[in-house]
């Protein structure tokens, strides 16, 4: 495991009026690891991701990416620095084809975005890249389907495909299996496995499905009511009393929590 810190937050905070969604979170993410964020509903996980990807501006604290302060940068600049993000609620370009969804993400990495008078089909490299990614996420053969017509599981794959096409170093996956049936989950897990196997990528994962968390994480950070209450390896977290109290006292009761200990 590499010891470089790729992402660090320092007392990151977000208030919505009187509600404190993220209450001073300090986290260090090591390069090349799979770092999961778990916690009961309303723990502030998605808000935390929104702060990292630049969707929201924090009300306090700082974010460092590869040693640079990125707290004030807008979302599109963070994307170019190498922070990619997928969304819990599917966030695609609904009336464009699957291919075009991914091709646009690939095009954003090039220098051809302002070539006003050339045909976009003249830049075949983006299309080739998009097709490679569709192969990787298992959507090959559906490239001409209009995105909103895809089944839910395929939309989740497309969501990750769009993210991968921006070639991020740090992937923020916000509940990649959200709303999926049990049969669809292995497909997504296979995709995440491939991303891990390709090496060099750091993955931050928010998930509710414990078997996924326990299997896919190197480090787990547990959030509760906007704060970090525990951090450690899957085995450490599974035996942590504060974590169990947060879950049992919260809205979630995780059946089989112990059964999934590694």
């Amino acid at each position: 495991m590499d010891n470089t810190i790729i992402l660090e937050t320092n007392r990151l905070r977000k208030d919505f009026g009187g509600l404190v969604a993220v209450a001073g979170v300090s986290v260090k993410v090591r390069q090349g690891t799979s770092h999961s964020i778990i916690g009961p509903n309303g723990a502030g996980k998605t808000t935390f991701f929104n702060l990292l990807s630049g969707v929201f501006k924090p009300t306090g604290g700082t974010i460092y990416f590869k040693g640079h302060d990125i707290t004030a940068l807008p979302a599109y600049q963070r994307s170019h620095l190498g922070i990619g993000r997928s969304f819990q609620i599917t966030n695609i370009f609904p009336n464009l084809t699957v291919l075009e969804n991914v091709r646009l993400a690939a095009q954003s990495r090039g220098r051809d975005n302002f070539k006003l008078l050339s045909d976009f089909r003249a830049f075949g490299r983006y299309q080739e890249r998009a097709l490679e990614i569709l192969e990787l996420v298992g959507l090959r053969g559906k490239e001409l389907t209009v995105a909103h017509a895809l089944p839910h599981g395929d939309k989740r794959k497309l969501e990750i495909g769009i993210l991968l096409a921006t070639e991020p170093e740090l992937l923020l996956l916000d509940e990649p299996t959200a709303g999926m049936s049990q049969e669809e989950v292995p497909g997504i897990m296979e995709v995440i496995g491939k991303i891990k196997a390709s090496g060099g990528k750091t993955i931050m994962l928010v998930e509710h499905k414990m078997e996924i968390i326990m299997r896919a994480s190197d480090v787990i950070t547990v959030m509760h009511l906007g704060s970090v209450i525990a951090e450690g390896t899957p085995a450490q977290i599974a035996n942590d009393e504060a974590v169990q109290a947060a879950y049992l006292g919260g809205t979630h009761t995780y059946r089989g929590w112990r059964a999934h200990q590694p």
Partner: peptide
């Protein structure tokens, strides 16, 4: 039909997503 035109269509379809994949909307 230019690369720019495709980005504009993406912005029409989903502005927030166009920003998160790196376009200065």
């Amino acid at each position: 039909n230019s690369p720019t035109g495709r980005v504009l269509i993406a912005i029409r379809e989903n502005e927030a997503r166009a920003a998160t994949i790196g376009y200065n909307v």
